[in-house]
């Protein structure tokens, strides 16, 4: 007899789940922000809402492709997304983005020239740079005494089993391309054939492939060298200065994450207000404080403190050779297959 209430409770719970939570207040002023996890500080969102009264629904993703999957499905309408350069390019090609009305985003003037009119958005019609970063080499200088200046210094027999790299076929192939003097976007069957023997030599030397947290293996001392995101390198450097960041002499990938407005955004005006808000130096400064990437906002950089600017992973000294990725279409499949084959053999 005692089971009856239990059953009723179960049915009630089920009914509650299906009705109670689906209704969504159609608030006139809110924006749906779809961005990388942890990339938009809560303080920035709260500040924006306090000032404009526009509520921000912050949904997150962990890779450009994850974002695309949900965006393309049409399950949800977003006002702002935060893709990397090659994804912006693909989205523009497919006419998935709206033009930004620059009159509504006057603070765009704070962005440095070298971050404007880049190949992925050549006329700067669709995107507002958020943060830039690079992929470079981290060296544990306690263990590796010789100078490391490029990819070939990393992938040597004597470093076998002491290397962590990003688990990302496109990145890995771009490094090999750089060593034969090709750019990261120079992906053709011929160039892939050319780098195949190089990769066949490199991959067996790698101990760990990790895109999510390559810092773990370095901090644990399980590896001494890494080719990782600059953000990871900055965290490592902050933990211990023995972890030095080197941008490879052969050239490196500079990524640039930007804000953009999907074509079917319900509230583009609110989205542009958000763009303008985050371009304020004092707001942009908060983002830098939270995440040690390269801030393209020159006015905000003036507000940064010495240690932040001195972190070589955030603001690399000298004049490194940096290139963005462009959308390479079907060649991505060939790259994937190449690296999978080589890994399977290793």
């Amino acid at each position: 007899m005692k089971r009856v209430p239990l059953f009723v409770a179960i049915v009630l719970a089920a009914a509650l789940a299906s009705t109670g939570c689906t209704k969504k207040a159609e608030a006139p002023n809110e924006i749906n922000l779809f961005a990388w996890s942890e990339y938009v500080p809560q303080g920035v969102i709260d500040g924006f809402t306090a000032e404009t009264g526009i509520r921000v629904n912050y949904e997150t993703y962990a890779s450009n492709e994850e974002m695309l999957a949900k965006l393309v499905s049409g399950a949800q309408k977003y006002d702002l997304i935060q893709p990397s350069e090659y994804t912006i390019e693909a989205l523009i090609k497919e006419q998935r983005l709206q033009l930004v009305d620059w009159a509504k985003v006057p603070n765009f003037k704070n962005i440095g020239q070298e971050f404007k009119n880049l190949p992925h958005d050549p006329r700067q019609l669709y995107s507002v740079p958020w943060m830039a970063g690079s992929v470079g080499i981290v060296v544990n200088t306690d263990k590796i005494k010789e100078p490391i200046t490029g990819y070939n210094d990393v992938f040597q027999e004597k470093h076998s089993g002491r290397i962590v790299v990003l688990d990302d076929p496109r990145e890995i192939v771009s490094w090999a391309l750089a060593t034969v003097g090709k750019g990261p976007n120079d992906v053709t069957p011929q160039t892939l054939e050319q780098v195949k023997p190089i990769l066949a030599r490199w991959l067996p030397l790698v101990k760990v492939y990790d895109s999510d947290s390559p810092k773990t293996a370095l901090l644990n001392g399980d590896v001494d060298l890494g080719i990782v995101w600059s953000g990871e390198a900055a965290l490592l450097y902050a933990e211990n200065e023995k972890f030095q960041y080197v941008l490879p002499a052969e050239g490196a990938h500079q990524f640039l994450d930007s804000l953009a407005i999907p074509i079917d955004a319900p509230n583009p005006i609110g989205a542009m207000a958000f763009m303008n808000y985050i371009l304020r130096p004092e707001v942009s400064r908060l983002i830098s404080a939270d995440f040690p990437y390269t801030n393209p906002n020159l006015e905000a950089r003036k507000l940064l403190e010495e240690p932040e600017l001195d972190n070589p992973a955030s603001y690399p000294p000298g004049n490194p050779k940096l290139t963005g990725f462009s959308d390479i279409g079907d060649s991505a499949v060939a790259i994937d297959k190449l690296v999978t084959d080589l890994k399977a053999k290793g």
Partner: peptide
Amino acid sequence: NDILGGGKVDMIGNIIENQFKGSARNWPF
């Protein structure tokens, strides 16, 4: 496999996941 194996050896789950969440974006495959 990714965390404890260092991602060195792919499992079928890794390969499938990469087709949706990796840069190849090859859903049909």
